[in-house]
């Protein structure tokens, strides 16, 4: 029973990471109808930036905030420079640019920071387990951070003028222009936010899985699975889906398939969702766009 409870709690902790990355994916999907296949690599790159800042001697939380700001700027820059010219291009061309970004980021990391696995510090006391061994300090802390981020993002989109404008631009670009919203900049801001959220997810998972250029690949897969499960066009659904696949992964890993096939489990979830309920649990019904 204790084992099951621990798997559940651990599932929620990793689920928070998946939920964050899923949210980042869905934010960009909603406004552009493209999936950023480079989202994972961008997050890993941000985590390397954080490690560099920490190694320079900055206190953890200052490095944390700086990394978020740098990642935000990086996201805005990528959208403005690389994706803006592609707004009217085919889906294939856009997928191609994402794949190109993935290649550049992944290999640039290998080039700059080399391929060896690196330890990444956790800001949360991790020496003694809390709540009678149920949860480690890092699990608790990272869950709090991801929940906090998700909460802030919710408040931002739900209650601020800028958040409303970003939602409007995502739903209906031409009407948004008619009320004076600068749609192009809203897309860039969305990219910035997605990159910042990804950076936080990267910094929270790195102490657990260690930092290397491939770190986010499996996480991206679970985020895809979570986004699909919750509904690819529904940010709230994607967050719930992210937590759900986190729990499924941990329970499945412990009792079903073992850790060897964790990625295959994510693939299985993706295929199951597409077969059973392609619109996801909370998504609008997907019209076959052929």
């Amino acid at each position: 029973m204790q084992g099951l409870a621990h798997q559940l709690v651990a599932g929620i902790a990793t689920g928070g990471i998946y939920a964050s990355v899923a949210l980042a994916l869905v934010m960009i999907y909603q406004s552009t109808h493209h999936l950023n296949f480079a989202q994972g690599e961008m997050a890993t790159f941000s985590t390397y930036i954080a490690l560099t800042l920490i190694n320079v001697g900055l206190p953890y939380w200052i490095a944390f905030v700086l990394t978020i700001l740098i990642s935000f700027a990086m996201g805005v820059f990528i959208e403005r420079v690389m994706l803006k010219p592609m707004h009217n291009a085919s889906v294939l061309a856009n997928v191609g640019v994402f794949i190109g970004l993935l290649l550049v980021f992944r290999n640039a990391m290998g080039w700059i920071f080399d391929y060896t696995i690196k330890a990444f510090p956790s800001p949360f006391e991790s020496d003694h387990p809390l709540l009678g061994g149920l949860i480690s300090g890092h699990e608790l802390g990272s869950t709090a951070v991801t929940l906090g981020v998700l909460g802030i993002v919710y408040v931002f989109f739900r209650f601020t003028k800028l958040g409303l404008a970003m939602r409007a631009a995502a739903f209906n670009a031409s009407s948004s222009r008619l009320v004076g919203i600068r749609v192009g900049w809203m897309l860039a801001l969305g990219w910035g936010l997605a990159a910042a959220i990804g950076a936080i997810a990267g910094m929270m998972i790195a102490p657990v899985v260690f930092l290397e250029p491939n770190m986010m690949l499996g996480i991206l897969l679970y985020a895809f699975a979570g986004a699909l499960l919750g509904g690819i066009d529904n940010p709230g659904g994607a967050v719930i889906g992210g937590f759900a696949v986190g729990i499924i992964e941990n329970l499945g890993g412990a009792y079903l398939v073992g850790t060897e096939l964790k990625l295959t489990l994510a693939l299985g979830i993706i295929i199951c969702v597409l077969l059973v309920k392609p619109s996801g649990l909370f998504g609008r019904v997907v019209q076959s766009r052929v």
């Binding site: 404008a165 409007a168 209906n172 948004s176 008619l178």
Partner: peptide, 19 residues
């Protein structure tokens, strides 16, 4: 019509006055 179908009437009002 150019209304924001997914948003509420209130949010459409706010967007009208966005600038």
């Amino acid at each position: 019509r150019g209304t924001f179908m997914e948003l509420t009437v209130e949010e459409n009002f706010k967007l009208g006055a966005y600038v």
